[in-house]
Amino acid sequence: MDQDKSVEDALKDMIVERLFLSVEPGEIGDDDNLMDTFEIDSVRLLEIVVGLEEVFDISLEDDEFSIERFESVKAIADLVREKLPE
């Protein structure tokens, strides 16, 4: 991950890249509902989870898979920050 970028910006880059979205990363709002706005279904969400673990070098636990943690860039960024070392 580029150290100069916020977690939110790095997430947006990763989401656009891995899901081949035809929008610019900056067009994704931090609070946009990803499922509703970008039609992210279960298989695309899997791509995001794999990307999270690779880009941020974190590992998600089974009990962290709840819908509110993945509904927006802000929610995912909060999850990432919880997992990153201090």
């Binding site: 899997l46 989870v49 898979f65 709840s66 819908i67 993945f70």
Partner: peptide
């Protein structure tokens, strides 16, 4: 992961393996 996400998308939260 695929199974957990499917559970999450259906029930809001994953049940586990």
């Amino acid at each position: 992961r695929r199974m957990l996400i499917r559970q999450m998308m259906t029930a809001g939260k994953a049940e586990g393996e």
